[in-house]
Structure formats: structure tokens, C-alpha cells
Design a protein around this nucleic acid. Structure first.
Length: 844
DNA sequence: CAGTGAGCGAGCTTCCGCTTGACTT
């Protein structure tokens, strides 16, 4: 009797194999083995959203091997994780290995112990196809959203961009937070704090007391008046309160909380945390690191108790069972914990040791007793200000409990207060009122973004780190440090009975390892929220998850759910095709032009980012300049933008005539005294040195390039142009030039070009023949405004019916009463109307 | 937006979730 057990992870397979007898072979799938085809949509949008699955390229070898083993085995046990994805993996395995889905045994275990595994083997079920359907709906929806939205971004904003249910919301969070920070208006209050001396009956100091005034002052005058009153007043202890308090340990780590703590305590990036954790997992030191569960197995709880009791004594032990708050959690695994609590430290790399210790402490602490504290609050009365007071707080640990191992969050500074009695007098050592500014909302770092996403139920433990990576790779988000700016503040100080004030400086807004949105992120988020607001909605995932749950319960067909989604989603994709690049590329405002006061923007256009001055109001035409090569639109300042308009600039006159000789002996070049002008074009800066004579500026700043440098560039260009000449016809504008694809005929003034066949000898061609061909050649295409506006409209008209008909037809067939056909008929007219509307606005 | 030099067309980019690879520089 031979058995094949398939789990997801190879590390798990190894452990399980030990617990099962010789009759059992345990192998792993290495996660998902099949996925929707890699290229293209891979979903039949017209026929029930049927996906085309294929074995993932990196799993082919493994699947072949599993197939072989399956054939040789009497019984197959699908032991993938007990969650939606695990169920789907089991189903894909059954499909790929040609197993009967109705009879193949499906087992799950919640902990890897011999009895648990044996119990699982004794109670097999079959694959839950409803749960599989829920996963398919999830997968297909993500593919549709990602693969229909991304191409729109390529067309309207920039190629290579991407959008998706998870990443687009992550980017939105960062964009919105940045807006909040920018819009934040800081105000200030004056906070009073300082140190007092406790006095004995004869006025000798017997102890120090750190105090604060809980309430703040709105103005410097009030704060000064307060300190001046205190200077003259008698201070005494008016109330003394002691209260017991306790602190409770936190739950053991999940992926997200581990990432947060490793970030704040060890300074790890989320990626780094996962890599180090993976190594600990593979070497058997910790349980699985991609989990959303805070649950510990009974065995683990018992083990922890044993360790705590023997290390610290029984009173430190308190067995606790934690519940996951998050409703979206799938809890296929345990919380992250040491596999052996008896091991307090591991060998290996330093970072592995540090992360392990963090995990060990957090898990152990979660099974320890509360810390018992005594909190003391002292109020100091001021006789001249009977309604006011200063307060001191102290906290003493009576019993440390879990703090013995996990004291990272212990409050500092508020230790034991000196002994005192009601009525005891005090004097001021130093008391200050500092002007303190309110702070804008904190920008996200990687870990806090993960926390927010998790709270919103967006993304999964296995995808947090990759998502953070993706948004950075696509150029939506930059992780960096930013220097703050110095800011003045007022400090009023009472010392030796005298009140003085001074202006001091501090750094404000310093950021370290924070996530900043790029301009592209702003553009994409604007565009997507405008046209696909529901997908960018922070609730979108939660809403569809609710539907997936209904599917998993067998109360809804997955096709119906997708159909409902797609019939409202796809038309908006079609509509978004008609949005002009200009509208889609709306970007950042740079402020106003210092002289004209016109608004300035950085936008992204067909040829990349550019600056626009003026918004076309008041019949004034905006002016434009593209960014220099290497300039980043995200970082462009108003000053740099203005610099772009300092071109064209007259660099100087040609000091000498320069002529270059072509192969046929003809000469051309530039005369002495010709003005050289530096200009900025769509592909970068260039020099103009005559009618239709240009040389690109490479390696120099067009604002500061010298005449000497310019002349060198011009001469090089003339020489290069001369080298391109195959033949000239003296006295005419006709030339035969060397092109990248062979020689061609050109007319220098009309810019018309004509072909020369491959088997022809270009040198043999007569002027008459060349002129004839030029005559027949098509007009050179006009580019620029007129052409740019026309082209998309044409394209849309030609492309639309063919490309868009089929899905629409399908929707119409399904629901005859929808507005779909009507909408389609009017598409072209609508485009025209929209364009007209845009023009009207322009004209205004 | 504008021009910097042929013009056209085909092909490419992309999603989210599971899991670790290792033929050779």
C-alpha cells in the first residue's frame, strides 16, 4: 500500500514525512502549480469567463515528477493549506495529475504533530469546489482588473505602468497622505515643563520632581504671565494619588506585526524581514512566517509554559489564547513563534539572531503574566494661581511579569517618585514654556503601509513585501530620507526667579525611510480615481471579499458575480479610451510665474514630461517647454522650470566659416558670423545655426554652454551631415542621403522623401528621375497639435467596432435590456461631442 | 506643446497569491 501526500511547502513535507510510516511519501507543490496563461488576458470574456490555465513554467518539472509518483501510488492525499488558495492548489493538483476530484482525499492539519497528522489522515474529506470557485473568482477578477487597466495607462500616461486591486490602492494611500501633509497648516501652543525641588521643613532640597502643566497656552504672553506668577508664588504638594495598574503582553507575531516590529526595533525593510525569517524557517527555527493568525497550538502553549516556569518561575506563566481581530484572516497557519521555546538564541548571521530573539521574546511574553505597576500622580499647587497646577507622574513596576523578556515598549523616564507628603513645599529648579508646533500626519514607511493595508483587508501576508516592491519598481513610490527645514521657536525659561525668553531653532519635517509619491503616482491616481473610483475605493476589496465568501458558501455562482462586475466595469474601460492624453496627464502645480502670475504645471505628454505656463484662460495661449534629459518631473522646482524658458538663447556668432566636403565633392556648411542659438526641443536641447540646421546638445547644459563648445558641436554635426550625403544635384534642393535603411531621395526644403529600391544604384539616378519620385511621394506628415489631435480620433473610429464589439455583444446577449448597444452606437458621436466641448473650453 | 532628418507595423509592457529554485557567466 503506497501513499502520496502533497503539501505546499517542502520544509513542511520533510517534517511530516518523519511522522508518517514507510508507506507514505510526502512531497510538496511549491505553492501554486498552475495559473491563468502568462501572456494576454487568458480569460474568455464572452463565454462565462472561462480561464485558460497552464502549468507555471517553473513548476513543470515538479508537476511531471508528482505525476509519476501519483501513478505509482495507491492513494493520494491533498494536504495543502486550509484556506482559499490552498483549496485551489489542491484542485489544480487534482486536475494536473488527472485525479478524480470526487474521490481524491483532501486533508488538513492545524499543527504539525504526530497525533494531529494521524487524526487528519483518519478524517479525509474531498476538495471543496465552492471554495475553489471563490478562489477562481478572486484570481479572474484580479486578472481582468490588472490587464484591462494597465494598457489604458500605457496609452494615456506612460508605457510599462501598471494598475491593480491592491497596488493602486497602496499608491493612492501614499498620494493622499502626501496631500494631507502638504495641506497641513501648522499651529502652535506653549507647553510648560521643567524640574522642581522638594524642600524639607527648613527649606533644604531633599529630591527632584519632573513636572508638566497638562494644559497648554495659546500665546507667548499667557505663558510668560504664568511663569512670572510661578516665580513669585509658593509651591506645595496638594494631592498625592497612587493607583495600581497593569500592562498586558501583545499577541505573538503575524507577518504584518513582525514586519512592523522588525522595522521599528531593528530597522529592517519588509523585504529584509521576510528574507531573514525565511532562513530561520528553513533551518527549522521558527514556524511559518507568512501568516495572519495570532493563534498558538496547544502544544506550543504547553511548551511555552514549561520554559517560562523553569526559567522564571511559575508566577510568570499565564497561558493565553489570542483571537484574530481581522475578519479577513484565513488562519491556515499558526502565529510566528520559535519551534522550540527552549532555544533562546540561535547561531547564524547577526540579523537572524536579532530577528529570532524578537520572535522568541514576543511569543514567550504572550504566554506570561501581566506586569503589575503602581502609578503615582502628584499635583503641585501654586498659591497665586489657585486654579492652576503642575503635575508629576511616576510609575513603578511592582511585578515585571512579561516585561522581563519584552520590555521594548516600556515607558522611559517615569520611574519612582521621591517620598513626599501633602503640603510639602517645593521650589523651581527650572521651568520652561516651549513653543511647540502641531505636526502633520505621519508619512508612511513600508511597515506602516503594510499595517494599513492589512487593516483594510487588502493584500495577503505573502504579498505585502512584493507589493511594496512593485509600487517602488513602477516608479510610483520612492523610499528615501528627506532633510527637514530649520524652524524658529520661542523658549521662555524661569530659572533663579527670573523669566527670560529667546528664539531658538530646530529642524522640522526630517524624514527617514519614508514613502513619497512621485508625480506619476499622482497622475495615475487622479486618472484612476476619476474613471475607476470603485476599484480605487478603500472598501473595494472588502466588498468583493464579501461576495467571494458567498460563493464559498455555495450561495452564488462565480460567473454571475464576475458578470455583474464586468458589465459595469468594462464599459468604463471603453469610455476611458476616449480621454485625451492631455487630460489624463494632468500633473503637479508648480505655483505661479513670478512675473506674469500665470499658473505653472508639470505635465506628462506624448514625448515625456513638460512644463506649461498658463492654463489657457483669457484667450491666452499657454507656453510650453519640455524637461531636459535627465531631469525628473518629480523633483522639478519652480526655479528649474523657469530656467527652461530662458531658451532660446543666443550663444554667439560663428567665429570662422566652416565647410565640410561630401563624397561627391560638394561643399556645405556655415558662414562666419552666423548666430548660434540654443533651443529646447521635445527630444532635448539643440543648437540652431541656420535655416533648418540643427545640432543636438549632448553633455552640456544649454543654459551655460560656451561658444567654443557650441562651435565644436556644430562642426561635428556638419561633418556628420556631409558624411551622410551620397549625391547632390548642384543648384537644386534635391539630395540623395544615406539612411539607416539604405539611400533615399530627399528635398531639403519641402522635406519630402522618396524611396530608392534595394537593387538600384543610387549614383546612377538622374535628377529628373529623383524629381519625379519626389513628386509622387506622399506629403510629409504634419506633426504637432493638429496631427496629435486628429490621430487618436481616427484610430478610435477605426479600431473601436472591431475591438470592442465582441464583449459588448456578449453583455447584450445576456441582458437584453442593458444600455450597451445604444452606448456603442453613439460612441463616435460622443467622441466628437467631447472633443468639441474640450475645444470650447480651450477657446474660453 | 514643438521638430531633430522615412515611415510603417509588429511586439512588448501589466494583475494577485501560493511557494522556493541553482545548467552557466
Amino acid at each position: 500500500m503506497t501513499n502520496l501526500v502533497i503539501v505546499e511547502s517542502p520544509a513542511k513535507a520533510k517534517t511530516i514525512e518523519k511522522y508518517l510510516g514507510k508507506d507514505f511519501t510526502v512531497r510538496s507543490s511549491y505553492g501554486h502549480i498552475r495559473d491563468i496563461q502568462k501572456k494576454g488576458m487568458g480569460i474568455d470574456l464572452e463565454n462565462g469567463f472561462l480561464p485558460n490555465y497552464e502549468i507555471s513554467s517553473d513548476k513543470k518539472k515538479n508537476v511531471t515528477e508528482l505525476k509519476k509518483l501519483a501513478k505509482a501510488s495507491d492513494t493520494i492525499w491533498l494536504a495543502t493549506d486550509e484556506d482559499r488558495e490552498g483549496e485551489a492548489i489542491a484542485w489544480h493538483l487534482a486536475e494536473a495529475l488527472n485525479l478524480d476530484i470526487k474521490t481524491t482525499k483532501r486533508i488538513v492539519f492545524h499543527e504539525i504533530t504526530k497525533p494531529a497528522i494521524q487524526a487528519a489522515i483518519a478524517n479525509p474529506r474531498t476538495v471543496d469546489l465552492d471554495l475553489v470557485d471563490a478562489q477562481q473568482a478572486r484570481r479572474i477578477l484580479d486578472r481582468i482588473v490588472g490587464f484591462e487597466l494597465s494598457p489604458i495607462l500605457w496609452k494615456k500616461i506612460r508605457t510599462g505602468l501598471s494598475a491593480g486591486r491592491v497596488q493602486s490602492v497602496a499608491v493612492r494611500l501614499i498620494v493622499e497622505r502626501e496631500k494631507e501633509v502638504e495641506a497641513f497648516e501648522s499651529n502652535f501652543v506653549f507647553r510648560v515643563q521643567g524640574q522642581l525641588k522638594l524642600l524639607d521643613k527648613s527649606g533644604n532640597p531633599v529630591g527632584d520632581l519632573d513636572v508638566k502643566r497638562t494644559a497648554t497656552f495659546a500665546t507667548e504672553e499667557e505663558a510668560t504671565a504664568f511663569l512670572e506668577a510661578v516665580a513669585k508664588a509658593n509651591l506645595s504638594v496638594v494631592s498625592l494619588e497612587e493607583k495600581p495598574a497593569k500592562r498586558t503582553p501583545k499577541a505573538p507575531f503575524t507577518t504584518s506585526t513582525l514586519q512592523q516590529e522588525a522595522s521599528s526595533k531593528l530597522g529592517f525593510s519588509v523585504k529584509q524581514t521576510m528574507m531573514v525569517a525565511q532562513r530561520l524557517y528553513e533551518s527549522g527555527k521558527i514556524t511559518y512566517m507568512r501568516t495572519d493568525s495570532v493563534n498558538l497550538s496547544e502544544l506550543a502553549i504547553a511548551q511555552a509554559k514549561e520554559t517560562i516556569t523553569s526559567e522564571y518561575g511559575a508566577k510568570y506563566s499565564e497561558s493565553r489564547r489570542y483571537k484574530t481581530k481581522n475578519a479577513d484572516a484565513q488562519e491556515a497557519h499558526e502565529a510566528i513563534r520559535p519551534t522550540d521555546f527552549g532555544v533562546e538564541n540561535v547561531t547564524g548571521e547577526r540579523n537572524e539572531q536579532r530577528l529570532y530573539q524578537l520572535i522568541w521574546r514576543r511569543a514567550i511574553a504572550s504566554q506570561m503574566a501581566d506586569a503589575q505597576l503602581k502609578r503615582t500622580t502628584v499635583d503641585v499647587g501654586i498659591d497665586l494661581l489657585p486654579d492652576d497646577k503642575l503635575t508629576a507622574k511616576g510609575e513603578v513596576v511592582i511585578f515585571d511579569g512579561f516585561l522581563k523578556v519584552y520590555d521594548f515598549d516600556a515607558k522611559d523616564g517615569s520611574g519612582l517618585l521621591p517620598p513626599m507628603t501633602i503640603g510639602q513645599a517645593l521650589s523651581v529648579t527650572e521651568l520652561g514654556a516651549k513653543q511647540s508646533y502641531s505636526r502633520p500626519p505621519a508619512r508612511y514607511n513600508e511597515a506602516s503601509l503594510v499595517r494599513t493595508l492589512e487593516e483594510m483587508g487588502i493584500g495577503r501576508p505573502s504579498t505585502y513585501a512584493p507589493t511594496i516592491d512593485t509600487v517602488q519598481q513602477r516608479g510610483y513610490v520612492i523610499k528615501e530620507d528627506r532633510e527637514g527645514k530649520p524652524r524658529d521657536y520661542r523658549q521662555i525659561t524661569l530659572v533663579d526667579g527670573k523669566v527670560s525668553a529667546e528664539t531658538l531653532s530646530e529642524m522640522a519635517g526630517t524624514e527617514k525611510n519614508k514613502l513619497f509619491p512621485t508625480d506619476i503616482a499622482g497622475i495615475v491616481t487622479n486618472f484612476l480615481t476619476k474613471h475607476f473610483g470603485d476599484i480605487l475605493d478603500y472598501q473595494f476589496t472588502a466588498k468583493v471579499e464579501g461576495k467571494f465568501d458567498v460563493i464559498a458558501e455555495g450561495k452564488m455562482q462565480w460567473q454571475d458575480m464576475l458578470s455583474e462586475f464586468y458589465t459595469q466595469f468594462h464599459p468604463r474601460v471603453v469610455a476611458a479610451e476616449d480621454v485625451s492624453r492631455e487630460e489624463a496627464g494632468q500633473a503637479r502645480s508648480l505655483g505661479n510665474h513670478p512675473e506674469s502670475g500665470k499658473p505653472m504645471f508639470v505635465k506628462i505628454g506624448r514625448y515625456g514630461p513638460y512644463v506649461q505656463v498658463g492654463d489657457g484662460e483669457n484667450e491666452e495661449k499657454p507656453t510650453f517647454a519640455s524637461l531636459m534629459p535627465g531631469q525628473k518631473m518629480d523633483l522639478l522646482t519652480l526655479e528649474q522650470a523657469l530656467d527652461l524658458f530662458k531658451l532660446p538663447r543666443e550663444v554667439g556668432e560663428m567665429p570662422e566659416t566652416f565647410k565640410a566636403k561630401a563624397v561627391d565633392g560638394s561643399e556645405f556648411g556655415v558662414e562666419k558670423g552666423q548666430m548660434i542659438i540654443a533651443k529646447q526641443g521635445p527630444f532635448g536641447p539643440y543648437l540652431e545655426y541656420g535655416v533648418k540646421m540643427y545640432a543636438p546638445i549632448k553633455g552640456f547644459d544649454p543654459l551655460s554652454i560656451t561658444l567654443e563648445e557650441s562651435v565644436a558641436l556644430v562642426e561635428n554635426k556638419i561633418q556628420a551631415d556631409a558624411d551622410k550625403i551620397v549625391k547632390t544635384f548642384p543648384g537644386t534642393d534635391v539630395k540623395i542621403l544615406k539612411g539607416r535603411w539604405g539611400p533615399y531621395i530627399t528635398d531639403v526644403t519641402t522635406k519630402k522623401n522618396a524611396k530608392i529600391a534595394k537593387d538600384e544604384d543610387a549614383l546612377e539616378l538622374s535628377l529628373e528621375e529623383c524629381e519625379k519620385r519626389l513628386e509622387e511621394a506622399p506629403e510629409p506628415k504634419k506633426r504637432g497639435r493638429a496631427a496629435a489631435k486628429k490621430a487618436p480620433a481616427k484610430k478610435a473610429a477605426a479600431k473601436k467596432p472591431a475591438a470592442k464589439k465582441t464583449p459588448a455583444k456578449k453583455a447584450a446577449a445576456k441582458k437584453p435590456a442593458t444600455k450597451k448597444p445604444a452606448a456603442k452606437k453613439t460612441t463616435t458621436r460622443k467622441v466628437a461631442a467631447k472633443k468639441a466641448a474640450v475645444k470650447k473650453i480651450d477657446a474660453k
